[in-house]
Design a protein around this nucleic acid. Structure first.
Length: 571
DNA sequence: CTAGGGTTAG
């Protein structure tokens, strides 16, 4: 055995010195392993010199693990490669989980390359016959493929793992894989097949309910947790709070919030953001003041929620004030998202020139979101010239941006520039640029139904369209005329009316009316922003049919009750 | 021989 390295740069010199003095480093070479592992992230050359002196599988494994969780995970992969070259060490089942975790952490920076690295690691462990011998390897492979966005591969790892390895962690990995890919109904379906569950399971389920706006299922998950668990951790509490807020149930959110004894800045931020989008922006700002009073420091996310509250309340001056005092009062540098909130705030309030001026002074390169906020404001306030400019800027950054293409096409159409309209549209066709189709989901008796515009797939489709007809008749008696001005492109007026009368949220509403009684709450979640016509229809229906209608659109909630909306028509 | 996998807002 070579002598232990003498070094003057080791970070754990006292320990090293003690091991040298006692002779432990000579008698027991494995003493080098924890030393190398603890040094790996602060003094890699020192760790490597220890490894060179004691190149055991164990010392490589612990050092790889340490690097995998450190600030430069690619070093874990590099060390693995040098391990392969070292005849005294042989990768085993302890080598791969941290290695795969390191590959997963590298993915955001170089997706294709690191995905290939992870697949190579998979091949390597397969050659060693370790593929289905260890449940930890299965779980980390599953997580790696999930992080790489390769859900079929992740699912295959699960399906191929021997049943005795399908423990709770493996199920949870799969659950979170579906969650990360936005397959929320799959999360719920999978959950129903699970026998054992824990907090991590519930986190995925509750988060899926938040995205779906599936309040009944979310409430059920809450009750299930209350029944099976003694206490609620801060994470799960915050997830439940978020779920109630994202389902538009502000009261339940408050009650979870009050029950939580150990709130952290996330808990407060979720609450503030939830109030902001549920038509209670002033309560959001009050809560922000309370949070500061009890000594919780806001973070960047909190400030986004605060700016969103200002935006929904139309509080332009307060919003600008918060943005400008962030560095001084909260020691937070505004990010491009914060500037985006203020562009949105100014834009909604119709101060388009100032919004544009802000974009031009932002200390970052303006991104699609920033110009997008301005574009939406230009559309709402009918400033075609500035809107065209914003759309051009967006297309410079993202030539396939559907919203910008549609805006330009409509602007050219309105100006009678048909050749330009044709140009935009054929380019859209050529590049297969579509606006995502509008879809709405409504949960009735714990079952989630999804509708697309003009959808006939529901088994009760005939009744739904009959109901829709009845609603239309009632509305015209009330003097409602369809407002078609937001419809894209220049299809003729009658087609426009048919088109908007079958918007997905109207179909969801019709099913809700069929399935509930007077006084009930109908909750609809829409993937895009609600259009003006649907908004006024919802208002009238809430009064005539005596229902509370809660619509979550892409940006906020609309609580319709007795003929008016919580947004006070400012959205 | 030692050690290891699942979760954390928009």
């Amino acid at each position: 055995m070579p002598p232990p390295p003498i070094t003057t740069t080791g970070p754990n010199k006292p320990l090293h010195a003690r091991l040298l003095r006692s002779g432990a480093l000579f008698d027991d070479p494995s003493a080098a392993a924890p030393l190398a592992a603890s040094a790996a992230n602060s003094s890699l050359p020192y760790a490597i010199s220890l490894l060179q002196a004691h190149p055991t599988t164990f010392s490589y494994n612990t050092t790889i693990r340490s690097l995998a969780h450190g600030p430069r995970p690619h070093l874990a992969v590099a060390l693995y490669r040098s391990m392969l070259l070292n005849p005294l060490s042989n990768p085993n089942n302890y080598t791969y989980p941290p290695l795969l975790a390191a590959c997963a952490r590298l993915l955001p920076a170089h997706p294709p390359r690191e995905a290939a690295a992870g697949t190579a690691v998979h091949a390597s462990l397969f050659r060693r016959g370790l593929e289905s011998r260890d449940r930890f390897i299965s779980a980390s492979m599953l997580s790696f493929y999930a992080a790489a966005g390769d859900l079929p591969a992740a699912r295959e790892v699960f399906d191929r793992s021997p049943p005795n390895q399908r423990d709770l962690a493996l199920w949870n990995s799969l659950l979170h894989a579906y969650l990360s890919q936005g397959l929320y109904t799959h999360v719920l379906r999978l959950f129903r097949q699970m026998v054992a569950t824990d907090e991590v399971t519930l986190l995925a389920v509750v988060s899926a309910c938040s995205h779906l706006g599936a309040l009944d299922t979310g409430r059920w998950a809450h009750a299930y947790h209350a029944r099976t668990c003694r206490n609620t951790t801060r994470n799960l509490g915050t997830a439940l709070l978020n779920m109630y807020m994202r389902c538009g149930d502000v009261e339940s959110a408050w009650s979870v919030f009050h029950e939580m004894l150990d709130k952290d800045v996330r808990t407060w931020s979720v609450m503030i953001a939830g109030l902001a989008v549920n038509g209670l922006p002033r309560d959001a700002l009050k809560l922000f003041a309370e949070m500061k009073n009890i000594g919780v420091d806001p973070d960047s996310i909190t400030m986004t929620a605060v700016l969103s509250a200002c935006s929904h309340a139309g509080m332009v001056d307060e919003g600008k004030m918060f943005l400008h005092c962030m560095p001084i009062e909260y020691h937070l540098q505004p990010t491009i998202e914060h500037y985006g909130c203020v562009v949105d705030l100014l834009g909604r309030a119709g101060q388009l020139e100032e919004a544009l001026a802000l974009i031009e002074t932002v200390p970052f390169k303006a991104d699609v979101a920033l110009w997008g906020a301005l574009l939406v404001a230009c559309r709402a306030h009918k400033n075609v010239d500035m809107g065209q400019m914003a759309a051009m800027e967006i297309l410079k950054l993202d030539p396939h941006h559907a919203g910008a293409c549609v805006f330009l096409s409509n602007a050219y159409a309105a100006a009678g520039k048909w050749d330009l309209v044709q140009e935009v549209r054929s380019s859209m066709k050529e590049h297969r640029i579509y606006k995502p189709p509008g879809s709405s989901i409504v949960e009735l008796d714990g079952v989630v139904y999804e509708f697309l515009s003009g959808d006939h797939s529901h088994p009760q489709s005939d009744r739904i369209y009959a109901m829709l007809d009845e609603v239309c008749k009632t509305l015209s008696l009330k003097g409602h005329r369809p407002s078609t001005k937001e419809v894209a492109f220049d299809i003729d007026e009658e087609d426009k009316e048919v088109c908007i009368s079958q918007h997905s949220e109207k179909l969801a509403l019709a099913l809700g009316l069929i399935s509930t009684r007077r006084g009930a709450v109908i909750r609809i979640v829409k993937n895009l922003r609600i259009c003006e016509d649907c908004h006024s229809v919802m208002k009238i229906v809430s009064e005539v049919y005596d229902r509370v209608i809660v619509v979550r659109d892409r940006n906020r909630f609309h609580h319709f009750k007795n003929g008016s909306c919580s947004c006070l028509d400012y959205w």
